[in-house]
Nucleic acid binder design. Structure first.
Lengths: 217, 217
DNA sequence: CATATCCGGAACTGATGGGTTCCGTATATG
DNA sequence: CATATACGGAACCCATCAGTTCCGGATATG
């Protein structure tokens, strides 16, 4: 059970001293519930995710869920929206001096776990995206775009540095790895490990930018 | 209502003269039913695809479906499997002399419609792939692999021709366009038109193979 | 025309799950 | 301790849907 550390909509009054079964004022169990929803969603898919399951997983009553969200769809949208957080800020990304170094530096166990979970959630809701524009927006804003923005920022930094030609299609290239990771995870069902990610950087992303495969500038 | 032109499992006796409501011997309405199933699947997703809907769409009775397939899952797997057909044979792909020419030649209105439908079907069943290995295999064999095989064959032809270095990761590169097209269609929900496909070829695929962007060998 | 076959359609069953209501209880406040 | 709040949990209602059964009619065969 992964833990969500941001507060979604309401404010967490203060940390409860540690009572396992202690209840809080307001309806401030939102984070746990949203987190449980994401877990169930990732494990079972949208339709198979029943509200009873989510309630059980969050050790909450189903009534509590409906006191807070008017419908299952709203709960899911809120849960997806609240995945946004943990993504690194662009400013505090270490500048290794080369684009390759920057990209490789993004491959950390933590970010890979996070990405894995996001991919599963994405797979759970793809079939809904065509019918629910709100969900589609939430998914793009919380799962798709953060990663693409990161890539875009690193590429633009490399352009400013003179490492990469300003003529490349930054947006398309920034979506290469998210696309291929999603495809490999959801459709091909092959593992996305460090080795694969590096082969993607060296074999596809850098060449697409006009850089030689394994050779940092 | 797109029409399936291959016969899935049983043999079609002969074309019925044109009787709108005329019935045939055996249970040889399989193609129409499978085609209807694919339509409903693509439009509504796996869970929302009810057997009643499929039956209605195929102007068949629900009993007829269950006379032929033991369950909904079996029907879907059979339907997906039967999408395999229309893909071009590798041998009769025109050899334009350059890899770029070969790749661009694959962009035809017909193949794009076909790909669009396949993408929607894929999106409809992604969330099931983790729970049903048989379905995952069917999807890969019918949707994923045919296109990748085509790309692979063209790249290998280019290697044999001396146009491309034999050191490239053919398999990964062959999956670039399928991955990015799927992502763009299902997640980003942006149009996949001729312009985008060509920008993919010139901006990503060819550079990844060490070829200059817009310049044929 | 009589018979056998198969299909479309409608009605039915059982299970599942979204959403609601209600109640006992734990917490907080005074 | 009394009161108000809100939570967990269970029971409930109702719609939907997978899967089944049955029947009337159309087709084919002789």
């Amino acid at each position: 059970m992964t833990q969500l550390d941001t507060v979604p909509l309401s404010e967490q009054t203060e940390d409860d001293g540690g009572h396992r079964l202690g209840r809080k004022r307001d309806h401030t169990r939102d984070p746990e519930i949203l987190d449980a929803a994401l877990d169930v969603l990732a494990e079972t898919g949208y339709d198979a995710m029943s509200m009873d399951l989510v309630a059980a997983r969050a050790k909450a009553g189903k009534a509590t869920l409906y006191r807070r969200w008017p419908s299952k769809a709203d709960l899911v949208i809120d849960a997806v929206t609240c995945m946004k957080q943990a993504q690194s800020r662009i400013e505090d990304l270490p500048d290794t001096g080369t684009l390759r170094g920057d990209l490789v530096a993004l491959i950390r166990p933590h970010s890979m776990e996070e990405a894995e979970r996001k991919m599963r959630v994405m797979g759970a809701v793809v079939s809904m995206l065509s019918r629910d524009p709100g969900l589609a927006d939430a998914v793009n804003e919380a799962i798709t775009e953060p990663r693409a923005r990161l890539n875009r920022a690193l590429i633009e930094r490399a352009i400013a540095r003179g490492e990469v030609s300003p003529r490349v299609d930054v947006d398309t290239v920034a979506h290469i790895s998210p696309s291929m990771v999603a495809y490999r995870t959801l459709v091909q069902r092959k593992p996305v490990d460090r080795e694969y990610l590096i082969s993607l950087i060296d074999g596809v992303v850098l060449p697409a930018l006009g850089l030689p495969a394994g050779a940092p500038a």
